[in-house]
Design a protein around this nucleic acid. Structure first.
Length: 471
RNA sequence: GUCCCCUUCGUCUAGCCUGGUCCAGGACACUGGCCUUUCACGCCAGCGACACGGGUUCGAAUCCCGUAGGGGACGCCA
């Protein structure tokens, strides 16, 4: 037996680790969810790890209930993280250690400039048409005052350029002239975002930072921090933002969409296509998304949220999902309407009968309410048009026939309707429309035979009787 | 103000890297028709775009330059 080949770099050392890092100052909106999704899909596609980190250093606005809303939402969407949630507030000691080390090694320094002083300089710069930028006045000073509050600033490179090779944006270069020595620790001893992000991403061995492109400029500040900390920066992917969110009465959180009757599969499918594409394909299963996703196919231009398209994708998923699964998702909507329902054969039959007539679960509930309650108003115009008194004998014959049918199914019911139609010399519509009105209150419904078959026989007869009162 | 990014039908996008097969393809929406016991679904058809201006080239949506418009970033917020 041959000696084993030299070990290649281990899978783990090369493995893909990505993180989704929302702050818990609110619920997830669609933009956040899409960022999470792209992270998740990339991780799965690469056989990597998807990590949730909560950026909770904003103590004034962070709330536990939002953390819960975030994890719930991810779970509902099928993107449960492999690791986390990790909280930054649990890691304060680490940040402080890192700050101390950077000061010791000369990569960072104390700055005693006051907020008022800095504000004045900023205003002056803007007034003179210069870029507002910290002067670096404490960078090399050693005459530190005693008992004065200070911040800690990172030393940025003083000349040259920083280039990142972004997986979405390509190569982007910024002159270090544009950068200043930014604060990494506030005067109250808490670290700032641009610093903790780097400390955490480095410590967690994040291999690819995938985030909104509002962070692209931050990246040029963060790269020198990685270096100062003794780490190579990870790969970056900056996704274009989504325009046009938070319209429609601010109902923008993912939970709101859930309540509006959208399916998680549809939301995921729709969001995946905002900024990413795979040829002409519009509908993707979870597995297809994982298989096809890649940053080569992510666009650089921002996109707009379009409710009509979401509705369409959702309606497609309403048709596609196994009926029993759809029924399960639907039940909460029915219960909220006060309908007492069970996940039984009849409910599944209703789903199959009605599913392709509704774009959302809310619509499905509205369209189907007559199955669950006889308490509806008759459409008066329809009654006037179709419920004529001379139909009475035929309807009564129908009721009689329905009482005697052996197999309660649409074929048998159809046969009966045709027979009664022949007997009374009536077109099918003459019997079908009054039946619809009696059962549903209006003339718009699925095929009458299937409609009748989906109800309990007793209920059909009851409603038909009630309907004859209108003749 | 300075810096960064973006610009194909109303919207999401394919094509752009590797110019010609693109008088630009698909999808949503919209319009019309078909199907039909109603309403939907479905099917078919139609409408509809390379931001603008220069250049390079035999030839540009595709390459180069500029202009305009949009977005983002410039915090002891994240």
């Amino acid at each position: 037996m041959l000696a084993s080949a030299p070990l290649k770099p281990t899978e783990t050392s090369m493995s893909v680790r990505v993180r989704f890092a929302p702050s818990n100052t609110g619920r997830l909106h669609l933009g956040n969810v899409r960022t999470a999704l792209f992270n998740y899909l990339f991780a799965r596609n690469q056989g990597g790890t998807f990590i949730l980190r909560i950026e909770d250093t904003d103590r004034a606005r962070s709330r536990d209930e939002y953390t819960e809303a975030i994890t719930d939402a991810l779970e509902w969407l099928g993107m449960t993280p492999d690791e986390g949630p990790i909280f930054q507030t649990d890691r304060m000691d680490r940040y402080r250690e890192a700050v101390d080390r950077l000061i010791d090694e000369g990569h960072a320094y104390r700055c005693y400039a006051t907020p008022e002083e800095l504000e004045a300089e900023r205003e002056k710069a803007i007034a003179e048409g210069r870029k507002p930028k910290y002067s670096g006045k404490w960078r090399d000073r050693t005459d530190h005052p005693e008992d004065q509050p200070y911040t800690v600033r990172i030393k940025m490179p003083q000349e040259g350029q920083i280039t990142i090779d972004d997986m979405v944006q390509g190569e982007v270069t910024v002159d270090v002239e544009e950068l200043d020595d930014f604060i990494i620790m506030r005067s109250d001893g808490t670290p700032t975002y641009n610093f903790v992000v780097v400390v955490d991403d480095a410590a967690m061995e994040i291999s690819h930072v995938i985030r909104g492109d509002d962070h692209l400029n931050n990246t040029f500040r963060q790269v020198p921090v990685y270096r100062a900390l003794g780490h190579e920066p990870p790969r970056f992917a900056h996704l274009p933002l989504i325009d046009g969110l938070s319209k429609r009465g601010g109902s923008a959180s993912i939970q709101d969409y859930r309540e509006q009757g959208y399916l998680s599969e549809a939301l995921v499918n729709y969001l995946s296509r905002l900024g990413w594409s795979h040829g002409d394909q519009e509908l993707f299963s979870h597995d297809e998304l994982v298989e096809y996703f890649g940053f080569d196919s992510v666009g650089r231009s921002p996109s707009n949220f379009d409710r009509d398209k979401l509705d369409w994708v959702n309606s497609e998923w309403m048709k596609k999902l196994p009926a029993s699964e759809l029924a399960e998702c639907w039940i909460p909507f029915l219960e909220r309407k006060g309908f007492d329902v069970e996940h039984d054969e009849q409910l599944v039959a209703i789903v199959n009968l009605m599913r392709d007539r509704a774009k959302t679960l809310v619509e499905l509930t509205e369209e189907s309410s007559y199955f669950f309650s006889a308490d509806f108003d008759y459409d008066q115009k329809a009654v006037d048009k179709w419920m004529s008194a001379d139909l009475k004998p035929a309807i009564e014959a129908l009721i009689e026939g329905l009482e005697e049918i052996d197999d309660w199914n649409s074929d048998a019911i159809g046969t009966l309707y045709r027979a009664v139609g022949d007997e009374y010399d009536l077109g099918l519509a003459k019997l079908a429309q009054p039946t619809r009105i009696s059962l549903t209150g209006s003339t718009s419904s699925p095929s009458v035979f299937s409609l009748v078959a989906t109800f309990d026989r007793d209920e059909v007869i009851r409603r038909l009787h009630a309907g004859t009162e209108l003749l």
